[in-house]
């Protein structure tokens, strides 16, 4: 069986990639993709911990992961709607150009 550490390492890499994407990219869609990667890293963790844990029958990790998948979809839907609302007015989805509110 593949050891637990491998899963955690992959998840950590995914999380780091996602965080980098969310913080460094200027395109709002790319930021959204980074956020999805971070959520999936957490999902991977949860399922791996569930599989290797002592209470396999409790299903907590799996159920949490499924809920997060649904949540990520809701978040993406609202996020994309907001991006479209901004795009309609400004013809850009660059987060650096969101500068009406500052100071």
């Amino acid at each position: 069986m593949v050891p637990l550490n491998w899963y955690l390492t992959v998840a950590a890499l995914l999380f780091a990639l996602g965080l980098y994407g969310a913080l460094a990219r200027r395109n709002a869609i790319a930021v959204l993709m980074g956020i999805e990667l971070m959520l999936n890293a957490a999902n991977l963790n949860l399922v791996a911990f569930w599989r290797y844990g002592e209470q396999v029958m409790a299903l907590t990790g799996q159920v949490f992961a499924i809920l997060i998948i649904a949540l990520a979809a809701a978040e993406a839907a609202v996020g994309l709607a907001l991006i479209i609302a901004v795009y309609r007015d400004r013809r850009t989805v660059d987060v650096e150009e969101l500068d009406l509110l500052q100071g």
Binding site: I35, A41, E75, V78, L82, L101
Partner: peptide
């Protein structure tokens, strides 16, 4: 301004909640 407020809230908020989830 309202759209921008929602967008900024969304971007900060979803990153923070993803970090929390991890």
């Amino acid at each position: 301004r309202s759209a921008e407020a929602g967008m900024k809230y969304f971007l900060y908020g979803s990153v923070a909640s993803a970090v929390m989830l991890y």
